[in-house]
Design a protein around this nucleic acid. Structure first.
Lengths: 192, 192
DNA sequence: TGTATTTCTTGATTTGTATCAAGGCACGCC
DNA sequence: GGCGTGCCTTGATACAAATCAAGAAATACA
């Protein structure tokens, strides 16, 4: 698999076209970090230090309830942005965990640098608005899907659009994301 | 109840401080509309014409499933912004309904005018980002609350922070919002 | 290659909530 | 004031999914 240098810029420009100069300024502020399978990038109570873009691998974002069971709220695959935006944007302790489900690499930018880009360039300010909008509308679609389809249909639809990468991820993570027990998901699978 | 002329500006300035000139430009673009109990402001399939600010009364936003039952996704009370943001922002058909649960009034702005403000003033662009962020983080909190607490605790918490106005709204709407049948909610209430 | 550990499947039972059904209460209207 | 129409409550039953419990399969690792 190849990761072209334009990958990050292209991801930004899906929402807003950038000028070369402002992109150069932005790009220099990202650093590459690497992560290994099962590594926790952010823990509950910590302030999210980075906003990420996944170059390779998979991240999950989950909530750990007081009685100890985790609920996965979302995945970030190669080519997605990632991180606990909430904690990052407000610089307050996170209620979520960010965990790598595979090894891989990501671009990372700090809050100070991101704020600088928002302050300095209207294009980035707009990108920020459109990005958050994109996340919000995605959540909305998911919410409606959850309401309008049965557990079985939901699972079928999920499997259909599930990236290759997820195929080799433990079933319990997928069950957690679909808000059901691994047993239930296993039975759903067997039913066809 | 009194609605001061500064109400709308104050709502904007909770997120970003505005200059007098830009506020004057913005304010002139809002018009006041009034609505009556049960009025549908936006229907599924329509493009949301306005972004609203509720001066008085209550709006609900709901999804109507193919088999005809509605799920309330949120309420907007006096002093809240309202509308199908998704449809408004993307100018595509709405999947949601916006309905007045009481009579009242709202400020309304069109997509063209809102876009003008975003294009023209960096402060509004930023306001847009922070506003969407606010909505997103609110949804996140609700999602976590739904996952980490039982139906009973959820209902208790909801009643506790429920604005005065909701007290006189039919139980079935609240049940719908809490994603349970009116019977279940009634039984939960009786249990204390 | 063999053993340990994790992950997945399958079965039996319990539980929470929906559904179906009927009765009570309250408010508006003639 | 009596009556009708919503709205809420209460009861009986049904059902989907969770839980509890083993065992099978796959994977990691020595």
């Amino acid at each position: 698999m190849l990761y072209f240098c334009g990958m990050l810029r292209a991801a930004f420009e899906q929402l807003v076209k950038l000028e070369d100069a402002e992109w150069a300024d932005a790009e220099s502020r990202f650093k590459t970090i690497s992560f290994v399978k099962d590594q926790l990038l952010t823990r509950e109570g910590e302030i999210e230090p980075y906003f990420y873009f996944v170059k390779s691998g998979v991240h999950s974002m989950y909530y750990l309830s007081p009685d100890g069971d985790e609920t996965i709220l979302g995945f970030s695959f190669t080519g997605n942005f990632s991180g606990a935006y909430d904690s990052f944007s407000t610089q307050t302790p996170s209620r979520l965990y960010i965990q790598a489900l595979t090894s891989g690499e990501a671009f990372a930018i700090t809050y100070a640098d991101m704020s600088y880009l928002f302050d300095r360039y209207k294009n980035f300010e707009r990108w920020g608005r459109l990005f958050i909008q994109h996340i919000l509308f995605g959540r909305g679609r998911r919410e409606i899907e959850m309401l309008s389809t049965s557990a079985e249909e939901r699972h079928k639809a999920f499997v259909a659009r599930m990236p290759q990468e997820l195929q080799q991820i433990p079933l319990r993570h997928i069950a957690s994301y679909l808000n059901m027990t691994p047993e239930t998901l296993s039975r759903l699978r067997a039913k066809r």
